[in-house]
Nucleic acid binder design. Structure first.
Lengths: 226, 226
DNA sequence: TCAGACCTACCGACCACTAGGTAAGTCTTC
DNA sequence: GAAGACTTACCTAGTGGTCGGTAGGTCTGA
């Protein structure tokens, strides 16, 4: 199953800041409209994070947004459309939208650790992604494709960074980059889950840092092969 | 919220293999009863794993078990009772029930890797725990206490093994055992999620092995501190 | 004879979603 | 600047379906 990305917006395409179109063109939406959508999305993020996708109800999200359930469906024409809107916020690790200007080589891993450190102050986002990513492995879940390609992208990015590190001479060239990349991503995800259940028992950033260093230790240029 | 452990069984306490009690004592349940319960539990495991707890319905579990929904509720008096039964199977990593006879020191970590290797052939169990553990961080989830104490126990066990390793002289004594333990558990969990979404992209056992070795490399006795 | 293992029938609550309305805003035209 | 056309942003009411759980019955095996 896939998200109905074609159906996730109101009849008129929303614009960041609605611009008065040229005469004869389509009408611009009301100025408050975009802001309202963002309010609703913020509440949906919170609700999906605390309840999961399936267990969250449109009625609850609507109520928390101060409108009725059909009122909510005016802005997002279905529950999957709302989920789609939430996932498209791409507010999570900010890794995904780094694009081509991202740090090169080992600097990317530093950036990763920094992101983890900041995430420790954004419990809602951490919870959202932890809950939805695991829920997405269930049968026919509408976020399955999203998370599949998210992990593929994340993996590719870390692999590329490790390859760059080899080229830059930062690490030896004989490391199994796929395996190391998977381990780095895995430890970040796993720590999030533990942290959500027992925040006082887990230092996400420090442990991520330690693990990345350990995975690359002995692989630095100049070290003897093991 | 907690699981209603007091209410998770049929009127009569189930026995592994029901023994005919002495005359005058309480009546023994019918011989097929315990087997039926186990059949139901196996189907519940499968269903919770593929749908999650909240999205799985008693009606579906009942149908797959070849009875009606009230028929199912005859064996487990509520949905949470059924969940409780599923979690009590403790069929997962087998780590939890190792008890006092578990391997000492670094041998425990070898055992951990071996478990991961075997889990790659038991997708259902992996999926069950991945889905339920993440779902358990949602508000009021009935499995929350279970997973909280499961992680606490797992953490304590790995920490203890690392301390033993120090005492046995297998590693240096100045490692941050809590952090290393968290990292080991985290990488196992994180790899499971990636593996469920893209099995061909992840070698769970090899990557776990590599990460554990990396975390302990440089900490072996005789290595210089650094 | 009696409890275990089911069944049918039903409950109220909740689910996502639709139909169809209203009030108010925006744009065009005069 | 006012009138009319059109759209947005909601609303109330109701759809059919599913949910977990209960009441109370029947059959059967020990």
């Amino acid at each position: 199953m896939t998200l109905d990305r074609t159906a996730d917006h109101s009849p008129d395409q929303p614009v960041e800041h609605p611009v008065h179109r040229a005469p004869g063109g389509t009408r611009s939406p009301r100025p408050g409209g975009a802001r309202r959508r963002e309010e609703i999305l913020a509440i949906a993020v919170e609700t999906f994070a605390t309840r999961g996708y399936h267990h969250a109800s449109l009625a609850e999200i609507a109520e928390r947004a101060g409108l009725t359930q059909p009122g909510l469906l005016h802005h997002f024409r279905s529950k999957t459309a709302l989920l789609s809107g939430v996932l498209e916020l791409r507010d999570d690790s900010e890794m995904a939208q780094l694009g081509t200007e991202r740090p090169r080589g080992l600097a990317l891993l530093d950036h990763l650790v920094e992101t983890v450190r900041r995430n420790a102050e954004r419990e809602g986002i951490v919870r959202l992604y932890a809950v939805l990513s695991a829920e997405s492995v269930t049968e026919g879940h509408p976020a399955q494709d999203f998370f599949r390609s998210r992990y593929a992208g994340l993996r590719a990015m870390v692999v590329e960074a490790l390859v760059e590190a080899c080229e830059l001479g930062e690490t030896r060239a004989d490391i199994d980059v796929e395996s190391v990349a998977n381990a780095i991503i895995a430890v970040m995800d796993g720590l999030q889950l533990q942290w959500l259940l027992a925040p006082e028992s887990v230092d996400m950033a420090a442990t991520t840092r330690r693990t990345i260093d350990a995975l690359l230790a002995g692989l630095r240029t100049g070290d003897r092969p093991g």
